[in-house]
């Protein structure tokens, strides 16, 4: 038993104190420690350097390291806050915090907006929406004609772009999500509430005095 307890645990580069991360996110210290186990697994699946590379992210999502997907790319880019091509532990925890069932809905709405603002202009533009619909169709078995795609995009855009200026801003997006709450359903991962059961952290539990009850 004692042999598992070590204060000199080798942490990955970019490791951050679980107590600090727990302060900034909806996670408890134990949950952050459990996420560290998941992080170590994901970040060593191809290159064992303690950082999640895009191929490792794709491998975890699709069981295929080479499967490119517009939306997975966007998620990766948003998680990679420093924009250095890899996801560090702190970035991983803070970003996943948005997907926690207890995270504020406003954060989920903002994250989804940034996700769909492909070109980072501060707006979701019609062409971006069309590009995303086409990308979705490519990855599914749905075959829809160009005309119908245009109709779907037009209808959605006119519903969301209430100011009628040809782009959806964050305020319009917020109102649109309020009318269509299912749009951010995928921004909540109920699994995060059970993360300590899935990844019990026997080793790290000795490192932080966990004051949660």
């Amino acid at each position: 038993m004692g042999c598992f307890h070590s204060k000199n645990v080798n942490h990955t580069p970019g490791y951050e104190d679980p107590a600090l991360l727990a302060d900034e996110t909806p996670f408890t210290v134990s949950e952050v420690e459990a996420l560290y186990e998941l992080f170590k697994k994901l970040s060593s699946s191809i290159i064992d350097d303690g950082l999640i590379h895009k191929e490792e992210f794709q491998l975890a999502l699709f069981r295929n390291r080479n499967r490119r997907n517009l939306f997975a790319d966007r998620i990766f880019d948003l998680f990679d806050v420093k924009r250095n091509g890899v996801i560090e532990f702190g970035e991983f925890v803070r970003s996943l915090g948005v997907f926690h069932p207890n995270a504020p809905v406003e954060e989920k709405i903002k994250f989804a907006f940034r996700l769909y603002d492909l070109r980072r202009t501060g707006f979701i533009e019609r062409e971006e929406l069309k590009e995303m619909v086409i990308a979705l169709l490519h990855e599914s078995d749905l075959v829809i004609s160009e005309d119908v795609i245009e109709m779907i995009v037009d209808k959605t855009f006119s519903d969301a772009d209430t100011k009628g200026d040809g782009k959806i801003d964050d305020e319009e997006w917020k109102q649109f999500v309020a009318k269509n709450p299912s749009l951010i359903k995928n921004m909540t991962l109920p699994y995060l509430k059970d993360i300590t059961l899935a990844f019990p952290s026997f080793v790290l539990s000795s490192e932080v005095e966990n004051l949660e009850t």
Binding site: L42, L115, Y116
Partner: peptide, 26 residues
């Protein structure tokens, strides 16, 4: 059938790339 009346964002949100639950599968 073609989901003409479907919300485009609703369609997009079904992407497997947005389904992060697979990250937790063992």
């Amino acid at each position: 059938t073609a989901p003409v009346t479907m919300n485009a964002f609703e369609l997009i949100s079904k992407s497997q790339g947005l389904n992060l639950s697979s990250l937790f599968e063992k």
